[in-house]
Amino acid sequence: MRYDPPRPAGRLLLTPEDKEAPARTHRLLQLGLGERPEPALDAFAGHLASLTGAPYAMVNFLGEKGQFFAGLYAPDTGLVMKEDGTRPVMGRFLPRDHGFCPHVVVRHKALVLEDVRDYPRFAGNPVVDEFGIHSYLGAPLIDTTGTVLGTVCVADVSPRPWGRTGLETIKATAADLVVRLEGPGNGGALL
C-alpha cells in the first residue's frame, strides 16, 4: 500500500507529515485495534466527556487511510446548524486533514486549544466550519514500544478554558488507556 504524505498549502503545512503512519498501522493491527467500533472504548469516551465536562470525546486511531474513532461520545445535540436546517453527524471516520489529532500524533505531545480560531494554523481546519468545533484538548496514546497509536481527545463547540487541570486529566486518561489497550503481556486485551 502506498502512503502519500500531505502537501503544503502555501507556506504553511496545515496537516503535518506523518512518517510513522505505516508502522502505526502495523502496530494497531497487532493489537487488533483501529478497524471497528469498540463498545468499551465508547464507554471510555463517555467517561472522558464526563470527567472534562466536554460534549464530545473520542478515542482516535490514526492509520494510513485516515482517522478512526474506535471510541466515540457524540450526542446529536450541540453541533452547528447548517443553512438547510440540519445538523452535521459526527461519524467514526475523518480524513487525515480534518481535526487536530494528527498534530498530537506527530508531535508526540498533548495539545490544548482553548479557542481554535485564535491560531491561524488551526482556525481553517474543516472541523471548525463543518462541525462548529471551537475548542480541543487531546493527548497521544504512546504504547510500550514508543509507537503513538492515536489520541484521546475532547472537543466543544464553544471556547473553553481547559487549564492545567484539563491538561493533566487528558494526559492521565491517555496513559491509563494505553495500559488497558496493551493488556496482560502486551497482547492487546481490550479493557
Score class of each variant (00 low, 15 high):
I133S: 02
G66W: 12
A9W: 11
D176W: 07
D76I: 15
R164C: 13
G10L: 04
V152E: 01
P120I: 11
Q30G: 03
F93T: 12
P126T: 03
A110V: 08
T151S: 06
L79Q: 00
L149I: 10
G53S: 04
L48M: 06
I133T: 10
G187T: 15
E130Y: 09
T25V: 09
H103V: 15
G124N: 13
G166T: 10
D156R: 09
G146K: 07
A123K: 05
G63C: 02
H103E: 10
L14N: 05
A123M: 03
Q30P: 07
R121S: 01
F122L: 01
M81Y: 13
H47N: 11
L14I: 10
L72T: 09
R7S: 13
R160H: 07
S158I: 14
A49F: 02
G124I: 01
A139S: 05
V127F: 00
G85H: 14
P22G: 00
H103A: 06
T173I: 15
A49D: 09
R36S: 14
R87M: 06
G138Q: 02
G132S: 02
V104N: 04
M90N: 12
F69G: 02
F122W: 10
F93C: 03
R36Q: 12
G132M: 07
A172L: 11
G138H: 04
P8L: 14
L141D: 04
A54K: 04
K82I: 01
K171S: 09
E114I: 15
H108S: 15
R24Q: 05
T145E: 10
V112E: 02
G10R: 03
V157D: 05
L14K: 07
K109A: 14
A49C: 01
V80A: 14
L14D: 05
P39R: 12
Y119S: 09
K19R: 11
H47T: 14
L62P: 08
D143N: 08
D84N: 06
A54N: 00
G183L: 05
H108E: 14
P140A: 04
V104P: 01
V154S: 00
H98Q: 15
K19P: 08
D129W: 11
G132Y: 01
K171W: 04
L62N: 13
L48A: 06
G188E: 11
N60G: 03
A139L: 09
R2C: 05
Y73V: 06
R11P: 02
P161Y: 13
A43H: 10
V89R: 11
L113A: 02
L41V: 12
A45I: 15
F93W: 15
R160L: 12
V148W: 13
F69D: 08
L48K: 01
K171F: 06
A175C: 06
V154F: 01
F68D: 09
V127R: 02
G166E: 01
